[in-house]
Write a protein that binds this DNA or RNA. Structure first.
Lengths: 338, 338
DNA sequence: CAACGGACGTTATACGTAAAACTTGACCAT
DNA sequence: ATGGTCAAGTTTTACGTATAACGTCCGTTG
């Protein structure tokens, strides 16, 4: 479509209202308290409205030196979880006049390895999930204010971090299963190099190790149902006494485990218990519904955005991990008698 | 570094390399073929690299008059489907040096009813799902190039449209169920005012109406599992012969139907068949796996972006709906004898 | 009545970039 | 010698906005 008529500028509005461009900027910028008469202000607003004026963001950003836009770097959008994070971050951002641009990690988005090359928008700051590890080095280079999501607070030099209380999530799962009487565990671990999964493994080993007579095996899988299914089948196909509970790093893995168990003819929870982490829609779609740990993705995004706003304003972000909650459903039960 | 803490500009690079700002722009813009010597160019690149120079996007956008950024308006991100659309659009965009900014519809993102107020980025164009109807009026106002996703080609004045072949999806589902011998149907319809769902209802009625002896009831539900469950239970609680197949407008609704049927003590597919549309991860997570119509969300996003690029370049977008594919799984079977 | 200050504006400028228009010197053919 | 071409730059300008700095006209006041 031909670009026939260019968009009206503040100067066009000024001309239409019979004032200077500065007056337009004053009025529309709501900074005209004692500088422009009410009558003139109204005339300007009318003119702007008539012409359908919209300020040129690029010009404003250039003038102001900031963009009120931040980048959210996530591993992928294929799970509701990061959709939730985005939603929460975007809500808080909107409340503060900010916008959020998304950068899902490279594999889906083509050759651009650098988030900043792909995100055309000029940015004021970055919120990055530690799961999008491949993009991190590029981010380090820039001097942009940075908030890390679920990242090692010690390891991320200088950057603020916002974390879910994953250790507590693992503690609750472990306590729940131990209470039920389970002693032989399979840990279906996400094969993703990220702090949040390292913590899961470490904490689980610690909790179970504290109880005499427990055993813990580990299987690794990419966060994908088929992969999880295959890994679970392989892990259960080994000799020795079978685990009575499968602890999965997230719900998607748990669904893979469900399918593997179904194929092996094992019933959940009668023959074997399963737990997840996330509480996605998946968790209640399966039968039996999944016992899992609810992570509040939106709150996570909110807190991330708030932390970034704090950094931008020179304040120090709120401390404290985001609490999580074990949701007991039908996938866990006492182990059947050996 | 004249200003100490501010980011280096092209002028800083110029000074460091001992050339003019224009030369820097030429070299870094890769438009220096016969205008700058190789030696000088190399010096400029070195200086830029040393200083960690990144062009100011706001300034560039202002100068160029475009931003190479488009807005994608979607109803929500809570389903993988639009995550896929985004991914596809973003991939094609990246290939053409464009970025994609996301605008999930208002309910999740706060008071900003206007996509353009919330998306701080200056935009070259818009791709909008017809499901995000509330945002559409705002979009109409602007003169931005617009591509509509799954919208009435007749109704969207002037705007280019890209559509999935939804009529064919319905045809395939109907044919499949009719072939199996079903005659009494329940249509679990998405209670969302959008062309794509109107078409489903219309086409389904037409296809089934063409076969003598069929009956079709309709239940409406918001696209949410609980709502779909409640609507299904209510619809099945009426007197008269029970439907033998539930045709759902999408997979999420189908999961709600599963749960309703389970509660009613009906078995899928022995007592009743169920179909969905989308082929989300959900479809294979449930037991039995769901017979559904696969929509290629990424291709949808790709085609949307390509159409927008075409509009921007004054070409006319590719015509033709995106083909869909029935995936038969375990949730459909011949009706049991009445 | 000179000076002052508020109300109501305007003029001028800077933000950083891309690119059109201009300069300079060297080399070449006439 | 004269003009022409070309490489290799430089100077200048414009993009649209926000705001600091600067006028003007008046009514008040000491």
């Amino acid at each position: 479509m031909a670009r026939g008529s260019t968009r009206p500028t503040s100067r066009d509005v000024a001309q239409a209202a019979g004032v200077s461009q500065a007056a337009v900027s004053l009025v529309l910028g709501d900074k005209w308290r004692g500088r422009v008469s009410e009558a003139t202000a109204e005339r300007v607003r009318r003119a702007a409205d008539d012409l359908g004026y919209r300020p040129n963001l690029a010009a404003r950003n250039l003038r102001l030196g900031h963009t009120r836009t931040v980048l959210l770097v996530v591993p992928a959008l294929t799970t509701e979880f990061f959709a939730g994070v985005y939603t929460g971050a975007a809500r808080v951002a909107a409340e503060h006049g900010f916008g959020v641009v998304l950068y899902p990690s490279p594999e889906g988005v083509g050759p651009a390895r650098n988030p900043f090359a792909s995100a055309q928008a000029a940015l004021d700051g970055v919120i990055a999930s530690s799961m999008a590890a491949d993009a991190l080095t590029a981010i380090r280079g820039d001097r942009l204010p940075l908030v890390m999501l679920d990242s090692d607070p010690e390891g991320s030099l200088g950057a603020a971090t916002v974390n879910l209380d994953i250790p507590d999530a693992v503690r609750q799962v472990a306590a729940h299963l131990l209470d039920l009487g389970h002693r032989r565990f399979l840990h279906l671990a996400a094969d993703v190099p990220s702090w949040t999964f390292e913590v899961r493994a470490r904490e689980l080993a610690a909790r179970l190790g504290a109880v005499p007579g427990t055993s813990l095996r580990t299987a690794r899988a990419a966060i994908a149902v088929e992969d999880a299914q295959a890994a679970t089948e392989a892990a259960l196909d080994t000799p020795g006494p079978r685990p009575t509970a499968v602890v999965c790093d997230d719900d998607k893995l748990a669904v893979g485990a469900y399918k593997a168990l179904r194929r092996l003819g094992l019933r959940v929870p009668d023959d074997i218990s399963v737990t997840g982490v996330d509480d996605l829609g998946l968790a209640t779609a399966v039968d039996p519904e999944l016992t899992t740990v609810r992570l509040d993705a939106e709150l996570f995004g909110e807190r991330g955005m708030r932390a970034l706003l704090a950094v931008l304003e020179g304040r120090s972000p709120d401390a404290g991990d985001i609490p999580v909650e074990l949701v007991v459903r039908g996938s866990t039960a006492p182990p059947s008698a050996p």
